[in-house]
Design a protein around this nucleic acid. Structure first.
Lengths: 248, 248
DNA sequence: CGACGAGTTTCCACCAGGTGGAAGGGCGCG
DNA sequence: CGCGCCCTTCCACCTGGTGGAAACTCGTCG
């Protein structure tokens, strides 16, 4: 294992559940001997990737945050999308999500919710397997075919009694998502919650993200939500196209 | 130079001005031989800290962003502060800034602005020396005395003809900032722009950030802004106190 | 005030992984 | 099809990394 990989493993010791750690915790979480962890942590602190509080606890440093803010598929996408997501939230008063694909998972890049919205557990940065969520189905439908096959290979995870785990049916569903330009997920992940999702393209080209509304099946159905979700997705796509055109 | 430091230097090659780079650019920017840069970049891509586009360009990866989102003095502070900053913006319609101190600089963690606001160059993540800005004066006033001395040592940078660069006068000014609980910066950095800033404390304890309104001297004066800035700072302080109390 | 425990830092014998220039390969363009 | 640019691989060389043990620091408790 390279030292670069070890360095990254030290950083990976910090999680939403454990954002502050002592040196000994870092060593345990990263699987490294105390001395090795100590050496790496000191370099990270010196550079600003980690910072040490007076009580000795370590946390992620500002400098890493500044750097990470440059991620095009995170903050940049989020910033371009935010006005449209806010409009979509205002129009629907439900959970609004923006996600991108990374390998066989979706990563939530933005999420707007309110007091009336159905309770679904997605925090920004969270990851979720592709085939069951609305955004996941959009992202998978427009992924390279080898990604689709990999995602549908092997036993699929069942989240509720409604979860569809049949690969053949899911393949047909993905073809329909491509044709219709919209995906549905009806209580596939959470009892009582469903979603409508649409693809966000860079201009009119490749699908780079998906936007969705997650709603309570007790409160509404998919049909009235479709136009607003499509409009938001198209708006974000146009905004991204404008940004791409403005780049040298 | 350790490999950990080299790894971080590779990451540091990415900047707001150059968020996307080719491998050769990374080598040049980081000062490393091509082979060394290549090796490190491959490890970073494999882990998800960087990602490679089909055309070969590299950019910061989502995984780094997820990790960096754990920074307490960045996203966490920003999230706690945002409602109060929005209120402050609504009340004043001027530039609103939130900054933290890192060594002898302030780092802008959030910034709200509008079409009517005076044009000042501060993007989130930007750094600025402490002694001339409103937030900088607040952060310096409440820093350890050795930080204050270091900041005031040597010739200070002059930004406009109004910039105060006399260490003695600045020391007295910082004492006044501590006494009054508010700092002013009148055209110290930008001709025609001034600011009012107040300290954000963790609960009632240490100063962890500063909030300010930056306004046009042609449009208003400091006095009417002081109560709103103080109120925002107190609100954020209380919010942070509540969060600290809620933590295990 | 001293003992103790927990956690961090330093030591040091040992050696594995890192180094980087050169060569080879891939790809786009005229 | 040849050329230029950029990336990837090769490989002789060696520096920097390793990690258990010991030392050190600090807070707590009797």
């Amino acid at each position: 294992m390279t030292l670069t990989t070890r360095t990254l493993d030290v950083l990976a010791a910090f999680t939403p559940r454990h954002p502050r750690l002592r040196l000994a915790d870092v060593a345990v979480a990263s699987g490294l001997p105390l001395t090795t962890a100590h050496r790496i942590v000191n370099d990270l602190v010196r550079w600003g990737a980690l910072e040490r509080a007076p009580d000795g606890t370590l946390s992620v440093g500002l400098r890493l945050w500044e750097l990470a803010s440059l991620a095009p598929r995170g903050p940049e996408l989020r910033e371009a999308a935010l006005p449209f997501l806010e409009d979509l939230y205002t129009a629907t008063r439900e959970n609004v999500q923006l996600a991108v694909r990374e390998d066989l998972e979706s990563v939530f890049v933005e999420r707007l919710t309110g007091p009336d919205a159905v309770d679904v557990m997605t925090r920004v940065g969270a990851r979720f397997p592709l085939p069951s969520t609305g955004v996941g189905r959009v992202l998978l439908a427009h992924a390279p075919s080898e990604v689709q096959e990999a995602a549908l290979a092997g036993p699929l995870r069942r989240w509720t009694e409604h979860t569809d785990t049949d690969a053949g049916r899911l393949r047909a569903l993905l073809a329909e998502v491509r044709r219709a330009g919209v995906a549905f997920s009806d209580q596939q992940v959470t009892e009582g919650a469903a979603s409508v999702a649409a693809p966000v393209r860079r201009g009119r080209g490749e699908v780079v993200a998906a936007v969705s509304v997650v709603y309570s099946t007790a409160r509404t159905t998919a049909a009235p939500l479709v136009p607003a979700v499509r409009a938001a997705a198209l708006g974000i796509s146009r905004a991204l196209g404008a940004r791409a055109a403005a780049r040298p």
